[in-house]
Amino acid sequence: MPYKSSTIKSKWKKTKWLLEDAYFRRYVPHTLPFSKKNLTSMLNDYTTVFFKPTDGSGGKNIIRIRKTDGGYQKQLKTKKTYFSGIGQLYQELQRFAGNRSYLLQKGIRLAKSNGKPFDIRVMVQKTKQGSWVGTALFTKVGSPGKVATNYNQGGKIGTFRHTMEGAGFNAAFISQMEAELKRVGVATGHNFDRHYKGFKELGLDVALDSSGRPWILEVNTRPQIYPLLTLKDKSLYNRVISYGKQYGRYK
Score class of each variant (00 low, 15 high):
M1T: 05
K4T: 04
K4A: 10
S6R: 15
T7V: 14
S10Y: 00
W12N: 06
W12K: 03
T15Y: 06
W17A: 03
W17T: 05
D21K: 13
Y23Q: 07
Y27K: 06
P29D: 04
S35P: 10
S35N: 00
K36Y: 10
K36H: 05
L43N: 10
N44S: 12
T54G: 13
S57R: 15
G58S: 15
G59H: 08
I62W: 10
I62Q: 01
I63P: 12
R64G: 12
R66V: 09
R66D: 15
K67V: 15
K67E: 09
D69W: 04
G70H: 03
Q73S: 13
I86M: 00
E92S: 11
Q94D: 10
R95V: 02
R95K: 15
K106P: 03
G107V: 10
G107N: 12
I108A: 07
I108L: 07
A111H: 03
K112D: 09
S113Q: 11
N114G: 13
M123D: 00
Q125D: 05
Q125L: 11
K126E: 06
K128D: 01
S131I: 08
A136D: 12
T139A: 10
K140I: 10
V141S: 00
P144K: 12
G145K: 12
V147T: 03
N150M: 09
Q153S: 11
G154E: 01
K156F: 01
T163F: 04
M164Q: 01
E165W: 12
G166W: 11
G168F: 01
A172D: 06
A172Y: 05
E180K: 14
L181P: 13
L181T: 10
R183V: 15
V184L: 11
V184S: 12
V186T: 12
T188D: 10
T188H: 13
F199T: 13
L202A: 14
G203Y: 11
G203E: 09
D205V: 05
V206P: 06
A207V: 08
D209M: 05
G212A: 09
R213Q: 13
W215V: 15
E218H: 02
E218T: 12
R222Q: 14
Q224D: 14
Q224I: 12
Y226I: 06
Y226C: 03
L228E: 03
K234I: 05
L236G: 02
I241Q: 01
Y243W: 08
G244Y: 11
G244K: 02
K251E: 07
